[in-house]
Design a protein around this nucleic acid. Sequence first.
DNA 1: ATGGCCTGCAACGCAGGA
Length: 255
Amino acid sequence: MKIATWNVNSLKVRLPHLLDWLATERPDVVCLQETKLTDDNFPAAELEKAGYRSTYSGQKTYNGVAILSRLVAGDIVTGIPGFSDEQKRVLAATVDGTRIICLYIPNGQSVDSDKYQYKLAWLHALQSWLKTELATHPRLAVLGDFNIAPEDRDVYDPVAWAGQVLCTEPEREHFRGMLGQGLLDAFRMFEQDDKSYSWWDYRQGGFRRNLGLRIDHILLSAELAAACRTCRIDKTPRTWERPSDHTPVIAEITD
DNA sequence: ATGGCCTGCAACGCAGGA
């Protein structure tokens, strides 16, 4: 089973990239973030022609998440149960016996903003929910745009980013908390190149100069981690014309 | 130098992203 996550930064704009990428990589499950589409505008017919079923939870202008799968997706949950949130950032589904959780964790904007407090409250609620999901689903994968660079090696300039949103200690503690619950960071289970990132700023030639952050992640339960054979960041779509600022992360799990 | 770039919405600039 090949699973992936990609913040597409507008599915309307990026649909041609997504279709090209699906045809090349042929993943079994893809979690998308920042679709920026209401559900009535979701391009389910085009994706169906490409061989994918679509499960989605969107809104106008901002946020929006989706799970694409070759096989049927069941037990669909939107949002964090018990956590009131207008923003469409969470989608869970079971595909082929594997529980998939697609996350678009809030950005937080800046540490002195209300949005940062919202991010921390959101992460707190997420931790509680993940605990129950782990207890009920031994085969659990959590994929998405976490908006957290877990360690300094995930940041192109850790000195400049020290204490900045995406790199603050409370955010990193939450990330480690998820690992503490038994989830594993699939990317770090394998040898990787130094300066591996999943996002680069559109400005200042960020991608060309590799001024990036690793903020898109795949976390696996112990059972899935034991069966995971590879995890890699696919930089290819970031080289294409009019790209998303994020690029896909892919993990392969043996059946 | 606190902005640079991209997207959507709606209006000819703004919010939001990271």
